[in-house]
């Protein structure tokens, strides 16, 4: 029981982690809370579902397609809607992203109806048995892929020129401009990258969770908690926090009952906000607005 609970938590932790990376980086770099982030995950899940339905493509192989599509969406929304609003008032971006969220969810209800769907593969039901512990293959692959995507995002931000430009803009917008970085372009890239990782998370989520246009809403709660837990803008922190969050949820579900999962999550969230708002691993300069 104990071992199975730990395994359940660990397997979901990676997915929670990459579902959060984009949200956390956007918040850390631009100070924008992207309420449409959940909708991006939902769009990614539907891309995996549609490609599987129409062309029989494996949902894990749909990831590159979803990432490219969402990069374009994220970049375009940042360039045309959010950048102009950021110049007037940062807090108003919350209203804009809420509008985008409503728009996307209703759009997908229109095209796909609000029916709950699922992606089935040949290996969906099978699992690996180690002693008394069952490990679902799908979840294992999803966990490994999510850690790989997370490492790639970390390396991109910290080891490439473009990534360094993004972090520089986060630290000091004006100084970055003096160094020849266009903040608006850096912001567009950040938003695109964040949306792309959310799309990847959506593909992984489509193999584990039922898909509906409101899929993102249920994710957004977890995304908030993991962001705050990991420290805003910190990719490494987010991944560790993703696993921590999933473990706590798994324990709450096993030992307290599924009803208490939400309460435990909220309590963690409010407690960390009050006691340590920079998160467990965050540096204080990130996310200051």
């Amino acid at each position: 029981m104990l071992a199975q609970t730990i395994v359940n938590g660990l397997l979901l932790g990676g997915v929670y982690g990459i579902a959060t990376i984009g949200f956390s980086v956007v918040w850390g770099v631009m100070g924008i809370i992207n309420l449409a982030h959940g909708a991006y995950i939902m769009v990614g899940a539907y891309i995996a579902f549609a490609l599987n339905q129409w062309f029989g493509l494996d949902p894990f192989l749909a990831m590159p397609f979803a990432m490219v599509a969402l990069f374009v969406i994220g970049y375009a929304l940042q360039a045309f809607l959010l950048n102009p609003v950021m110049h007037t008032s940062l807090l108003l971006t919350l209203v804009v992203t809420f509008g985008i969220d409503l728009f996307l969810i209703d759009l997908f209800v229109l095209f796909f109806s609000s029916d709950v769907r699922a992606v089935h593969t040949a290996y969906s039901g099978s699992s690996l048995e180690i002693g008394p512990v069952l490990i679902s293959w799908v979840r294992l692959v999803a966990a490994i892929l999510s850690v790989l995507v997370a490492i790639a995002s970390y390396l991109f931000l910290n080891r490439t020129r473009t990534g360094q430009a993004i972090l520089a803009t986060a630290l000091d917008r004006e100084a970055a401009r003096l160094m020849g970085i266009y903040p608006d372009r850096a912001y567009g890239l950040t938003a695109g990258l964040a949306a792309a990782v959310a799309g990847a998370a959506g593909c992984l989520a489509s193999t584990i969770f039922p898909i509906s246009p409101t899929l993102g809403i249920s994710f957004l709660g977890a995304v908030f908690v993991v962001t705050v837990l990991g420290g805003i803008g910190s990719v490494a922190g987010v991944i560790i926090a993703g696993f921590a969050y999933a473990l706590v949820q798994a324990f709450a579900a096993t030992y307290l009952g599924a009803n208490y999962q939400q309460i435990v999550a909220f309590s963690m969230f409010l407690l960390i906000l009050i006691v340590r708002p920079q998160g467990l691993f965050g540096k204080p300069f990130y996310g200051e607005s």
Binding site: V85, V95, G99, D101, L102, F103, I105, D106, L107
Partner: peptide, 17 residues
């Protein structure tokens, strides 16, 4: 009524901009 939120979202963005 079926695209209520879609219009509400667009209205929101329009107001802010």
């Amino acid at each position: 009524t079926h695209i209520h939120n879609l219009l509400l979202g667009m209205f929101l963005i329009a107001v802010v901009i």
